[in-house]
Every structure is written in structure tokens, then in C-alpha cells.
Design a protein around this nucleic acid. Structure first.
Lengths: 198, 198
DNA sequence: TCGTTCTTCGAACGAACGTTCGAACTAAAT
DNA sequence: ATTTAGTTCGAACGTTCGTTCGAAGAACGA
């Protein structure tokens, strides 16, 4: 039996725990506000002992963001596979994004909110995944345009508006108040789809 | 002749400069990543000399957020004043928000992105303004519902979707690529309005 | 039992940070 | 000329942080 959270598959089991707890702490305190000592306390591993599993605090953030983003992208590609109808594809995009967001809220908050906390090669690799994800979103919108189903809207601004609508949820979503995935996905899909279709 | 940026009206002239430069640096490096020494270098004031104008780094962030948010709210209230038509009011809300955002991008990024960086009395006061602003947005949507012009959507989720769409722009807006205010406000208004109206 | 590799940790280092202190400078008022 | 209040700053303090080092323990095959 594997770990409860599938995001960190392929990792050492102890590293999984570290990444999960670190994501939790980064989400609550912010990357710079969080401390390796916080993670040591939370995981029960000593301060020095943690460095057996990662080389630096930056690499720790990188690993969290990378795993989170790669799974999100992979999940989207799988969902869209074999679906031809442009409207259905957009619905799937929204559903996948929000489902993943709510299921992995802490990691997605870290991915969204700490987008500028890395630099160098780490940042470059995350941005590469980001471009790949953005390209898929753009193509879904472009297919709607090509099918003549969409109003004449700037594709980039259209996609960014949708992503903003969805990514912002880490600032306000409250499970008790706002319900489950479909309680978000339905109105958001409705608003956006109806908003861009002819 | 007053200062170039009206946001910090009512402040000591030198404090205005400090707040403006600090907002610039907080936006670029993040609140915790930025240093009082950075602000000293940028303003030409010595490290110790800065503390004549504010009591702590936290208060500095608070002052930036407070001035920014109060002006935004005031501007919205003035724009809506005397306008009765619900659809027109929503258009004005979007226009005001985006106009203000693009005009004061650095401050609005600091306001949006550092929403959890304060605590205690500072946080409480900012959240009070936030509730006031949110209430206005909610009432604008509620008026649309009462007028029977809107679909049956959860008002809270509707408002948060709109705010997310707009607030996210600090993550992607590029003046050269994305044009001016109306290049954003027009498509966003169109998408959202068409998305929620019957 | 020995030797090797993997894993863990207490202790400490060096750097960076927010903040403070007391002195010095300025300028207007007495 | 002296006082007073407003303003500025070099230097330093105390704390916290990321990271490192060397040793010790655990696991396991030879």
C-alpha cells in the first residue's frame, strides 16, 4: 500500500512526509516566514537530519512545486485525452483544475503564492511546466475560436481571466461555507463558458 | 503642487517617498524578502534615519496597505454614487477596480500578495476595510439578483470569482503585451457580465 | 564478528536582519 | 548667543536563520 497522497509518488517514503509537512508549513507561514526548524518540529526529525533528504530550503520548495505542478499537468492531459468537443474540453479543464486545487490546497497555494520565491535553474524548470500548462489552456480556448463558438476575445486575456478566477480560491475558499468541488466548478464553469461563447 | 501619486495624500512629504519606494521593493522582493536596508539604499536615507518616520517594518507595510485600500474603496464609492442601474454599477465596479489596479500596480500587488503578512491590530484594520469593500461588491451583485437580471448563482462565489479574475492580474499583466485599462476591462466585463446575466 | 553503508543528530558557525542608542546637525524662536 | 524641537546618522546589539561538521547509531551482508 502506497502513501495516502499520490502527489509525491516515486519519492522516498520519509521524503514524502517531509514534503507534505513542509507544504503545510509553507502554506501557513509563507516560504520565507517558515523555518527549517519549523519543519523539524513538525516532522519529528532533527534540524541536521533533514538535510540528508534535501540540499537546501530552496530545493525543498522546488520539489513541492515540481511534484504538484507535474501531477496537475499530467492529470489535465489525461482528462482531455480522447475528448474532441471544444466545449467539453473547457469544462474538463475547469473541473480538473478545481478538483486538483481543492484536493491539494496547501500544495497549490504554495505553487501559486510562491511563484517568485525561486530563482536560477529551479525557477526555470517550474516556469517550463507553467508554459506547458498554459499552452494547453490556450489551445483549448483557441479550439473554441476555431470552431466559431467563441466571441472575439483576446485569447491570452481570456485564459488568464479563467486562471485568475480559479487560482484565487486559496485566498477565500472555506470548505464549511463554500461546499465541495462541484459547488465551485458548476458556477465558475457556467459564468466563464456563458461569458465567452457567442 | 502636491505629490505625483495621490495615494499617500495627507502624509509627510518624505514619508510619501518612503512609502512609495517601500511599496516598490515589497512588490519586487516580497515583504519578508525585502530589507529595511534595501529601502534605505533606495531612498537615500540612512538605516536609522528611516525609523524616524515609522516604528517598525510591520507598520510600514500596514501604512502602504491602508492607504492603498482606503483610496480604492473611496474611489469605488464615489464612482457608484448616483448610479442606479445594476448593470451599470457592475460595469463601474470592474472599471474602477482595474483602473486603480493598473495605475497602482505595485501597491495593489503588495495589498493582494501580502494579505497574510500582518497580524494583530494592523491585520484587523486592513480586514475591516476588506469587509467594507467586499460588502459593496456583494450588494452590487445582490441588486442584479433582486432586479431579476441574474442567474441563480451563489452571490459569494460569484463575487469571489470576479475578484479573483481581476486581482490575479499582478501575476501576468505586461503593459507592452496586454495594452491599457480598457483592453483588460472590456473583455473581463464582457465575460463576467454575460456570464452571470440571464 | 567485522566492515560498510545508510541514517540521525547535537553543537556550532557565519551571515543577515530588525531595531536601538546617543550623538551630531539644522533651523527657527527667544 | 542660547535654547529648543525637529531631523539624521554611524555604530552596535541581540536574535534568528540556513547550513555544516564530525561523531554516533542502525541495518545488514560477508
Amino acid at each position: 500500500m502506497t502513501s495516502a497522497k499520490t502527489i509525491y509518488a516515486g519519492c522516498d517514503q520519509k521524503l514524502e512526509i517531509i514534503l507534505r509537512e513542509a507544504a503545510h508549513i509553507f502554506a501557513r507561514k509563507g516560504f520565507r516566514g517558515a523555518t527549517i526548524r519549523d519543519i523539524a518540529r513538525q516532522t519529528g526529525i532533527s534540524l541536521a537530519g533533514l538535510y540528508y533528504y534535501f540540499r537546501s530550503k530552496d530545493e525543498l520548495l522546488f520539489l513541492i512545486q515540481k511534484h504538484c505542478f507535474e501531477w496537475l499537468t499530467l492529470s489535465l492531459e489525461q482528462q482531455l485525452e480522447g475528448v474532441a468537443d471544444p466545449v467539453a474540453r473547457l469544462r474538463l479543464l475547469v473541473k480538473n483544475h478545481l478538483e486538483y486545487f481543492l484536493t491539494n490546497m496547501r500544495e497549490m497555494k504554495v505553487l501559486s503564492h510562491e511563484a517568485e520565491s525561486l530563482d536560477g535553474a529551479f525557477l526555470a524548470e517550474i516556469e517550463q511546466i507553467k508554459r506547458r500548462y498554459y499552452k494547453i489552456c490556450l489551445s483549448v480556448v483557441q479550439e473554441l475560436i476555431n470552431a466559431g463558438k467563441m466571441k472575439e476575445l483576446n485569447p491570452r486575456i481570456t485564459v488568464m481571466s479563467l486562471l485568475g478566477m480559479m487560482n484565487w480560491i486559496y485566498n477565500w475558499y472555506d470548505a464549511k461555507r463554500d461546499g465541495k468541488v462541484h459547488d465551485l466548478a458548476n458556477p465558475m464553469t457556467e459564468i466563464f463558458l456563458r461569458g465567452i461563447l457567442r
